Every structure is written in structure tokens, then in C-alpha cells.
Simulated scan of single mutants.
Amino acid sequence: MTSPTLGSMLLSSADPQRLRDWYVAALEPAENNEGNGYRILKFGEFHVLIDSRADIGDKNPEPGRVIFNFHVDDARAVAARIDGLGSTWLAELEDRDGGLFATAIDPDGNYVQIIQLSEEQKKAM
């Protein structure tokens, strides 16, 4: 039996269009489609499906429970786009042993990390 593949996740929102627009502007997904009522964003081989649900609030009460880690080639450029959206930072862009890391807060209160690993850090993974 082969190991399962994690291919997508559902990100629910009280305002899915606003959340989709933020992710598109901040992170520029490879694909941005709508189908079957979902807003579908593709990052690498991973899909984020954004939809509404009646059983959630406007803000995530426990944003540290699940954190998106987006590996990027130019963390400074991504941070500048996020700044341009007026977003709040949990942790501003900083150098950690040659890699760049930051944690933004999306419009629903979810934590979104941007990570630019150094070549040395990539090899260690």
C-alpha cells in the first residue's frame, strides 16, 4: 500500500471572497480558479480550497493551531506585498541563521509564515 498524499486543504471563511483576494494578492498562487463553489488556489502541488461555512466565526480563535508555511524565493518581495495590503505581522521578517522568516496574519486571523531558506538550510532538510 502506498502512503497517502496530502494534496489540498479546505480553508473556511465567513467572507471567502475577501480571503481569496488576500491570498492571491499576497502570495500570487500558480493557479487561481473557481469550481464547484470553491475558490481554488494552487501553490506548488498543493491546493487550498476556500469556501464559506455556517459554523465558523469571523476570526480564527486559535490561529496558532494550524500555520501555513509558504516557502518563497524572495521573502522581502512577499513581505512588501503583504505590507501593501495593510496586513498585521505576528513576527516581522527576520534573519534566522541565514534564512528569512516572517509570520503575517490573514484577514480571518490565520497565521501565514513566509520562509526563504538558505542553501545550507535546504541541504539540511
Score class of each variant (00 low, 15 high):
S3M: 12
T5L: 15
G7S: 13
S8P: 02
M9R: 10
M9I: 15
L10N: 08
A14W: 00
A14R: 13
D15G: 00
Q17E: 14
R18P: 01
R20S: 08
D21F: 04
Y23H: 05
Y23S: 03
P29T: 06
E31W: 06
N32G: 05
N32H: 12
N32W: 01
N33Q: 11
N33H: 09
G35E: 11
N36F: 11
Y38G: 00
R39D: 10
L41N: 04
H47N: 15
H47A: 15
S52L: 02
A54G: 04
D58V: 14
N60R: 10
E62C: 14
P63C: 03
R65A: 14
N69W: 06
D74L: 02
D74E: 07
R76K: 15
R76Q: 15
R76A: 13
A77C: 12
A77E: 14
A77N: 07
R81D: 08
I82T: 03
G84Y: 08
G84N: 12
L85P: 02
T88P: 03
T88M: 14
W89V: 09
A91Q: 14
L93G: 03
D97V: 13
D97Y: 14
G98M: 06
G98E: 06
G99D: 04
T103L: 12
T103D: 06
A104C: 09
D106K: 00
D108E: 13
G109L: 00
N110Q: 05
Y111I: 06
V112N: 00
V112F: 02
V112K: 01
Q113C: 11
I114W: 01
S118H: 08
K122Q: 15
K122V: 15
A124D: 13
